[in-house]
Design a protein around this nucleic acid. Sequence first.
DNA 1: TTCAAAATAGACAAGTCTGTCTACCAACTT
DNA 2: AAGTTGGTAGACAGACTTGTCTATTTTGAA
Lengths: 184, 184
Amino acid sequence: MRESGVKERILDTASRLFYDQGYHVTGINQIIEEADIARASLYNHFPSKTDLLLAYLDSTHASWFEELDAFLKPIEGPREKLLALFDFRIMRQKRYNYKGCHFNKITAEASDDQAVLARVKAHKERLRKLILELVDQTMYRSILNNEQLADTLFLLLEGGIAVGGMYRSSEAPEKAKQIAEAVL
Amino acid sequence: MRESGVKERILDTASRLFYDQGYHVTGINQIIEEADIARASLYNHFPSKTDLLLAYLDSTHASWFEELDAFLKPIEGPREKLLALFDFRIMRQKRYNYKGCHFNKITAEASDDQAVLARVKAHKERLRKLILELVDQTMYRSILNNEQLADTLFLLLEGGIAVGGMYRSSEAPEKAKQIAEAVL
DNA sequence: TTCAAAATAGACAAGTCTGTCTACCAACTT
DNA sequence: AAGTTGGTAGACAGACTTGTCTATTTTGAA
């Protein structure tokens, strides 16, 4: 059974459970059960539950931006790309059962782990930077400067998904998109 | 020691720990230790840990709006009150060590408890309604109608605090306020 | 002063948690 | 063909979890 994707199965299962149920209520026992692997295999690939958590964050971060790149690629123009960011988050909100942002969720649980907080911040800063670059490409002018406009969009996104997570719906991010359409 | 505030001490301690550390990592043992009360006293006032959680949400909700009322009372004019909402959240963000919204935090942990979700939603809806009433009192007109403007402010608030929680800072809600000042 | 309510300390049950360890087996490489 | 690697199954330690229960003491009011 060499190379049979044991490590992937562990990480996939853990990722699903960490997001769905929460990190602390998900036990090693449940992970090995649902991933259908041996206990020693898990500890062979991930020395501790914390390592598994960090691997979850890293892989989620990576696939998040990979997927976003593919999502934005066919879309023309910075304004349309900015609006598509909302569609992307709305799509994910639906796909993952309306529980909000993965990174927001984990921050609420892993309260004081610096390794976790650093990854969360890096993830959000990368998104913010991407938004700012797109805003800079628009020839937009208003009472807000480019950075403020980028922050507005960023906060509308984050606020929409956060509220969507609390309401278990996609209403808030959809409203956020409508506002962005009016503002841009 | 009758009426010595045992119940209050339990709830205060639990509230602090639930927010600070998280609900699931806070054990009954730690609560009774730090509240300096007997185990049976806790179970006398709160039949289960879940009851304690709901009491925490209810009391937090109540004091949140009481405090907000007092905070807004001396402030004149709907526009100024709306901006003061940001100051209120920023003040709380600082006071509670930058961990973001209490209700957002608990939603990330108590994933599927309907009693919890209902309280969170009620809390946020009340805030949203308050914002809309204040917006209605302004004679503001723009590309956004009143409801959209209220939603914008609401999402800026929630986004600012959510990001502030993830960054462990008050930068984001402060930026959110500046944007609100420009928009209003 | 009597008496019930409410607090205390602490043992206990039954279960869960993470992480380690042994023993064994299958597969791939040299 | 021998040996290394990565997988499996499952026992185990030690700590922690929530909730119950007994027995005792303090408190405030009648």
